[in-house]
Nucleic acid binder design. Structure first.
Lengths: 163, 163
DNA sequence: TTTGCTAATGTTATAATGTTGCAAATTTCG
DNA sequence: CGAAATTTGCAACATTATAACATTAGCAAA
């Protein structure tokens, strides 16, 4: 199950998950937040997949674990993880993905491959500042910025240019 | 029901809706697409509200009209309208809003007020180009770009600075 | 240890959003 | 007109998300 569709930049995924969990523990300690077993397990599941997982996907795996969980359990865990910036919700997919910049400031921008389903999170200061300038011109005060780009990743881009 | 919460720039809303419908008819003619009564009515409903309407909101109004419609009717009409760039779906709201730049190229960016719910669509070339450059650096080929900004519009921004 | 508080979880039901599939009606066009 | 294609009606269903309330775990003060 390790490599059905690798992310853009291949890497040791187990190590990458382990590191994400370690960082999550640190971040939660710093905030006096409890990374309970359920929360940690949900975070782990999301990290193990480079493709965003839906809440019900998570639920299904928990069920396999023997954890007889109901939807609210998963949504609550996801809310918690989002609150501390450990996962992001991808609005255009109704799904969740591990945050690769946990703890830092978030100008998250997501590249979502239509073909393989992988998602890459970027920090794009130029995008962020352009968005804030455009908002400022309308005297709008931004609170939360969603930038999601659907398209084709390098591995999946059809050779023939699109019609 | 005409002015529960005006958009950022006040205007004659009936005229604005009428113009949008006229443009829609033109655009559909140019594409040999049929703007049927249901489709036109859905477009009209969406335009009459500056706040994005959910599919089931539209459905409810159709029911008031006496039109005994089921969800697929609405979703199909919305798909059609989206296809011709007459409405946009706001992913973060699961709702639809009239496109204020129908027929032109779409670098749509949406400013969504958390307080009054109004949405302003902007064309922001600087944002679009920043997004495309960031994607290009990852050799990603963008297909569809979603930029949605939640925050506070000028009329609703709390005087006391946040946080 | 017991008590009391708060955060977290379990449980059931239900709401909200979106889709599939097929048959009937309508429009288009030869 | 009559065949083909598009559009609509309709029923059932699938997916995503939340409400409401009972229960339990963690922790600190009496």
């Amino acid at each position: 199950m390790s490599s059905s569709a690798l992310p853009y930049r291949p890497h040791n995924h187990d190590a990458c998950v382990a590191q994400a969990l370690a960082e999550a523990r640190t971040i939660c300690q710093q905030h006096n937040a409890r990374l309970t077993p359920t929360r940690e397990r949900v975070l782990e599941l999301i990290w193990q997949s480079h493709k965003p997982l839906g809440a019900y996907d998570v639920l299904a795996v928990l069920a396999e674990d023997g954890h007889n969980a109901a939807p609210p359990t998963v949504y609550r865990a996801l809310d918690f993880l989002q609150q501390y910036g450990l996962v992001h919700r991808i609005a255009s997919l109704n799904a969740f993905t591990g945050c690769t910049h946990a703890g830092k400031s978030h100008n998250g921008m997501f590249l979502i491959c239509r073909s393989c389903g992988n998602v890459l999170e970027l920090t794009a200061p130029a995008v962020s500042s352009a968005v804030h300038m455009a908002a400022a011109e309308e005297s709008f005060r931004p609170d939360d910025v969603t930038v999601e780009v659907s398209g084709y990743c390098p591995g999946c881009a059809p050779d023939h240019a699109h019609g």
